[in-house]
Nucleic acid binder design. Structure first.
Lengths: 249, 249
DNA sequence: TATTATTTTGCATGTTTGTGCCTCCATTTG
DNA sequence: CAAATGGAGGCACAAACATGCAAAATAATA
């Protein structure tokens, strides 16, 4: 098990259990206590946990997840999210809509990051509770519970007053010929609006999103600026153009 | 149990009980009295408590943040919330703003209830995920993380298009002479707007909200239609008029 | 692919911390 | 005043820690 992977695991455990004992982790993760200590020290230096004698404490309240979907492809999504982090710079205005992958991304954002986040997803907003230097602007609308985003006319209208540097788009399905498709018309309208007010668009797609079968409504938006995906479809670079596709192994 | 954890626990107990006995803590936390004494000495040195013979005292007024508020007065709030349920009828349009008591109320709503809920609080919206027959409309704005509500000009503007049957107002402080007061101007503006678009207004107040001392900004709204409170201040009925005050024993 | 450079890990070392017990002194209480 | 209770300081021991170093694993390079 890789070091980063292990530390991620520690954060995850800490998120669920509030505290963590070094000797305990040593057994659970099958590494020596020294290694655990080094991990904890590092995570503490990065401000992610509070190191105490014999263990560590969580810093803020636990991050909530809104569906069981959250845990599927968990490791993959974290990988994608980490890759996406490199596109996020200080003082950016980020527009982030729903989706579990986006939620992962938000959970990965460093606590020290200074930025503005515009979102129509309550879980995304709540995940940013502990980020002191991130201003959150919520876009209202009718709550679509299945994906936990606000949609509708009000949502589109509110977005008209805004501009964003980077739109991090949640992806349901993406097909090289059909394009991006979503399960409802209102979602398509909102996504199109979001795309139109953003300078760049970034999408993350796990392999299950790459299916060519699509019973969704096509979302008529301009092309993604960046697509981050798994190394499953080797020909995806050919189809989308290699300069914008980032492949995670 | 970790040392930091234990000391946190002591602070928490002290926050609720005003004073604390060393021998008592020793049993409750299953450590020797010596250890407790060392803890108390340390907390005193850090200026967090006042050490006295045989125990310690709280220094200031009890501190409350969002996460702890959520669990404080739990039983009382559930009682109040249950009482409030009787004012909620089928097919109502409910306007619900933030506050932990409101969150309790929402958690008490029967899963079969058919209604529309308008809210500017992400936690309230998320709490309604499982209510199949409740439509949720979120009001956007700038997220105010301390109380987890959306505020600002956009919030007020969005509310202009809406009408509600019942506004369930979160209460910070209520005083028979000063009225309802809130900790910030933006919150006052939003609450006033909410009040103006609702036919009736209901407030729930635990006993700690009835303090006459108030360093908040007064919220200039019309009177509450219903006030649900604890049976602590027997003269509250006289002050507010008995027809609108519901007292829970 | 083979080889080299870098990082990461585990172990041995001596040190620090946290805890309980004990003794002696101070304070309270009957 | 005497008995009882709480507190301070010292001691002991186990658990947790930092550090240096060599082996192992990983990444980078040819």
């Amino acid at each position: 098990m890789l070091k980063e992977e292990r530390q991620q695991k520690i954060l995850q455990i800490l998120n669920e259990e509030h505290k963590v004992i070094a000797s305990d982790l040593s057994k659970r993760l099958s590494v020596s206590e020294d290694t655990i200590r080094r991990d904890l020290k590092e995570l503490d230096n990065r401000g992610l946990i509070k190191r105490v004698h014999s263990g560590a404490l969580r810093i803020g309240p636990p991050v909530v997840d809104f569906s069981t979907r959250q845990h599927m492809f968990n490791e993959v999504k974290i990988k994608l999210a980490k890759k996406a982090l490199s596109f996020i710079k200080e003082d950016m205005v980020l527009l982030i809509d729903g989706g579990t992958t986006n939620l992962h991304l938000v959970n990965q954002l460093p606590l020290t990051l200074k930025a503005t986040v515009i979102t129509n997803s309550p879980p995304i907003a709540m995940a940013l509770t502990n980020h002191q230097h991130i201003d959150v602007i919520m876009i209202g609308g009718t709550l679509f519970k299945q994906s936990m985003v606000n949609l509708g006319i009000d949502t589109v209208e509110s977005l008209s007053n805004m501009r964003a540097d980077l739109y991090i788009m949640g992806i349901y399905k993406i097909d090289p010929y059909i394009g991006i498709s979503v399960p409802s018309l209102s979602e398509a309208l909102v996504k199109r609006k979001m795309a139109s007010i953003s300078s760049e668009i970034l999408g993350m797609a796990t392999s299950d999103k790459l299916s060519t079968v699509s019973n969704h409504i096509v979302c008529p938006t301009k092309d993604l600026t960046y697509l981050i995906t798994e190394n499953i479809s080797p020909n995806i670079k050919k189809i989308y153009g290699s300069q914008q596709v980032v492949v995670v192994d």
